[in-house]
Simulated scan of single mutants.
Amino acid sequence: MKRSFLLLCTALTLASAISCTEANGDEAADATEKTDKKKKKKGNDESLENSLIAEAVPGLRSVGSLGGVPESSGLAPGEQAGTYYSFGDNGNSPILYRINETGKVLDEISIGAKNDDWESLTRDNKGYYYIGDCGNNQSDRRNLRFFRVKPASPQQVDKISFSYPDQTEFPPKKKQRHFDCEASVWHDGQLWLFTKDQQEQSSYVYTVPDQPGTHTAKRISTINIPSQVTDAALSPNGQRLILLGRGELFILDGSSWNDILKASPRRVNLAGTGQTEGVAFKDEKTLLISTEQGGLYEYALQ
């Protein structure tokens, strides 16, 4: 009798275990199916988004997100291929964020300098990066500067202070507030500054030496840009300049730097991207563009 009872209990236990295993297997299968559906939906959503963007702006597509970079306001290529640097603007910590081509943060580098209003980022051919702490919406700052730094030694920072030769009032009248700069490129031993015109009519071009010290900027020319310039990038071969606006960009081509500065800008509408604030060349034909809202886009130049 005891043997029969034991056999019955064993059978019931096995049956229960099998039932639970099957139930768990069904639950796991359901979870996997839900995950697959979510991935498929996300993929479909991204494909739809890119289709809509490409339809509005041929050559433009979303490639990722800068969720780890607060209010991205500058962009420059990193030392390794496929990496870039960005940072947050006014009010954010003095940190360079090293990211990949989809916006994933690979490293956070604390810079030994203050972030009053970082707005632009460019690099030279010796591995130095120049952080433009020259955001100046009200044209009332007297402490405009660039910080020259190498990411490998972020606490060793050289300061390049400058002032504008044609500014005498701080601030000037609203229609004369042309001393806000959010765009710069390094070229031939100079930092080239492209100002942001509140009236959206032009961008003044200045130069500042790339050496530490206190300098008076030199005004070079004026480019007719019907927008507020928020960043700039020079192509690897030095024959194309990009001036970024808010939701648009301008292309200036030339066989020499002087020709580029005299070229008539070609406008590209970046409808739907948001407040575009950072631009860098991935290669001669492709741009990477960031927005203050955290969007990251790729644009194939025509």
Rank of each mutant, 00 (worst) to 15 (best):
His187Pro: 00
Arg266Ser: 04
Leu252Pro: 03
Asn224Tyr: 01
Leu193Asn: 10
Asp231Ser: 07
Gln228Lys: 10
Leu244Met: 06
Asp283Pro: 09
Leu191Lys: 01
Pro209Val: 07
Arg246Trp: 11
Asp188Gln: 15
Ile225Val: 03
Ser184Arg: 12
Ser255Thr: 11
Arg267Asp: 00
Gly247His: 02
Thr222Gly: 00
Gly247Gln: 01
Gln198Phe: 12
Phe281Asp: 10
Ala263Arg: 02
Thr216Trp: 10
Asn237Ile: 13
His215Lys: 13
Pro265Trp: 10
Asp197Ala: 11
Ala183Leu: 11
Thr230Val: 05
Gln198Ala: 14
Ala232Gln: 02
Ile220Glu: 12
Phe281Arg: 03
Gln275Thr: 11
Asn258Trp: 01
Asn258Cys: 03
Ile242Asn: 07
Gly278Glu: 11
Gly254Glu: 03
Glu248Gly: 05
Ser203Lys: 07
Arg240Ile: 07
Ser227Ile: 03
Arg246Ile: 14
Ser184His: 15
Thr273Phe: 07
Ala217Ser: 00
Cys181Asp: 12
Pro226Trp: 01
Pro265Ser: 05
Leu252Asn: 05
Tyr206Trp: 10
Asn237Pro: 15
Gly247Tyr: 03
Val205Tyr: 10
Asp259Ile: 00
Gly247Ser: 04
Asp180Tyr: 07
Ala280Lys: 07
Arg240Leu: 08
Asn269Arg: 13
Thr276Ile: 12
Ser264Pro: 01
Phe179Met: 07
Thr207Tyr: 10
Lys196Gln: 07
Asp210Leu: 06
Ser203Gln: 08
Gln190Phe: 14
Ala232Leu: 06
Glu248Met: 04
Gly272Gln: 11
Gln211Phe: 10
Tyr206Arg: 03
His187Arg: 14
Thr276Leu: 07
Pro226Ile: 02
Leu243Glu: 00
Pro236Val: 15
Glu277Ile: 07
Leu234Thr: 06
Gly213Glu: 05
Ala232Ile: 01
Thr222Tyr: 00
Cys181Asn: 15
Thr276Met: 09
Trp192Lys: 06
Asp259Ala: 13
Gly238Met: 11
Ser256Arg: 03
Ile260Gly: 00
Trp186Glu: 08
Gln190Lys: 15
Ser184Tyr: 08
Leu252Met: 04
Glu200Cys: 08
Gly213His: 15
Tyr206His: 08
Phe194Ile: 10
Glu248Gln: 12
Asp283Val: 08
Leu234Tyr: 04
Thr195Gly: 07
Asp231Thr: 02
Lys218Arg: 15
Thr230Leu: 02
Gly274Met: 05
Asp180Ala: 02
Thr214Glu: 15
Asn224Leu: 01
Gln228Pro: 01
Phe194Trp: 07
Ala183Arg: 06
Leu234Gly: 03
Asn269Gln: 12
Gly254Arg: 00
Val229Leu: 06
Lys196Glu: 05
Asn224Trp: 06
